[in-house]
Nucleic acid binder design. Sequence first.
DNA 1: TTTGAAAATTGGCCTAA
DNA 2: TTAGGCCAATTTTCAAA
Lengths: 141, 141
Amino acid sequence: MLDEKDRKILEILMKDARKPFTEIAKELNTSESSIRKRIKKMEENGIIKGYTVVIEPAKIGYNVIALTGFDTDPQDVLDVAKELCKFEEVKKVFTSTGDHMIMTEIWARDGSELKEILFNKIGKIKGIKKICPAIILERLK
Amino acid sequence: MLDEKDRKILEILMKDARKPFTEIAKELNTSESSIRKRIKKMEENGIIKGYTVVIEPAKIGYNVIALTGFDTDPQDVLDVAKELCKFEEVKKVFTSTGDHMIMTEIWARDGSELKEILFNKIGKIKGIKKICPAIILERLK
DNA sequence: TTTGAAAATTGGCCTAA
DNA sequence: TTAGGCCAATTTTCAAA
């Protein structure tokens, strides 16, 4: 379902999703149509879910990124996770094993805004028992 | 440094980084060259770090994604974090406050492979005192 | 902002394995 | 049947005015 050529295409797209098919074809010593058809198939298969821009949060004023775990009663996990998805500031939401059943990534302009988000906005979701924010100091990879 | 139009461009690119400039221009009621020049400037400024493809890990055989915290002695944090970056399977590395000074995202094909990565490969890095993996059950956002 | 040439994308149709 | 090749029409990109 996914051969070596597909993997190489994905590798290239991971580094630069806007690279023209013609150039990818040149790099892999094959034709543009082959590349195009493979990519289209991967999009249809759901292997490729989309393309996105990688932003430096600090450069657009988001200086505080917090990996934030949430604890709830077991029966509330899914409802709370769904509620969390609704907030613009909550960029990622996972359910997971480990210390917290819900893990999120939250973007804020500063500590004060994070406080607002955590305590005034999110904090009001019914069922949250504990909030465990860990502020990212540096992203190394 | 970043006005409303730039923000809207970023918003659109976040949803689909391959959308042609002409189409973005149409959506924002402006010209293609204006859009292109703004994007170029954001790339030069480092606001836009790049473009990437969003992949469904499970579809390419990565069925176990683990948010993994690492504990070390304080003076070893940066060295360990740097070592972690070297592993292909470790897709993201952060230093952070909170329970663990180092947070990572690790991709493995299955539990057995995760075990190999954590205990045989990564586990051998000098200075790691504790490994705390949390396996992602579902990504909701 | 507009314009025009070069490049890339897209779709259809074809062949070969 | 599927992957890849080829061609032609359209769209997009890009730089200069």
